[in-house]
Amino acid sequence: MMARALSGTWLALVFGFMIAPLVVVAGASFGRGGRTAMIDFPPHELTWQWYLAIPGDQVQALALSISLALACALAAALLGVPAALGIVRGDLPGRRAIAALFRLPLQIPAVVVGVSFLQLYYIVGDVIELPLVGSFWGLALAHLFIALPYVVGSVVAILNRFNMRLEEAALVLGAGRWSTFRRVTLPVIMPGVFAGAVYAFMVSFSDLPVALFLAGQGFVTFPVAIFQSLDYDFSPSMLALSTLIIVFSFVVMVVVQRSIGLTNLLHTGGAG
């Protein structure tokens, strides 16, 4: 009995610690703003005013972050699935080394990715006159570089558990190779693809360092906007947007749990 009460208290404390900043952001987004500061937590009176007055540049930053993350997740899925199929089924000598090669970007700190892609883009830009720094595709490519290992890892994990008999059965029953892939293989590996894509989305969406290096004039992602506003002009509408993102993250998690289960997502964390 004692032990149960003790562990219950411990969990309450640790979870309270973990959730506190999110509660503060959500709470303060409904505050009117005090006399001394714009931020008011706990709010003295509740108001929607910051949700109705989100400035255009903040909406733009959020829209940029979301489209970047979508592009990154889509590209990572389109490239990650064939890569995983090749690794698991290709039967090449040294496939462990190839798998390790795909994981390598995870070992590079994001700041180093930022520095190195900045210099790569300068040189590429000089040679083919393509300004990649400060461009959507330049940043998307760098995000893809960090995010691809997650999709490869999660799809490899699921392919290793795949029962080949399913495919053989489909082939014996007269299905073509393509329709076997589309109607048997793909549905089985889909949870892995989805889990990897969710990870890729989050990696891109929450990235600050790479975006700081590769952002340009008037090209600002949401994390960069928060970074800049913390030092200069912090506005409570930022909190309103952040609260919407928190709600969105929780909704995504519920969808993930309902559709593929959290275990599939957790397997992705180690990237294979």
Binding site: P21, L22, S206, L239, I245, S249
Partner: peptide, 18 residues
Amino acid sequence: VATSFVTIVIKVLGLVIL
């Protein structure tokens, strides 16, 4: 899992306010 998936930028924002 859900709290870990909220971007760190927002958690830091909450900490600074707290």
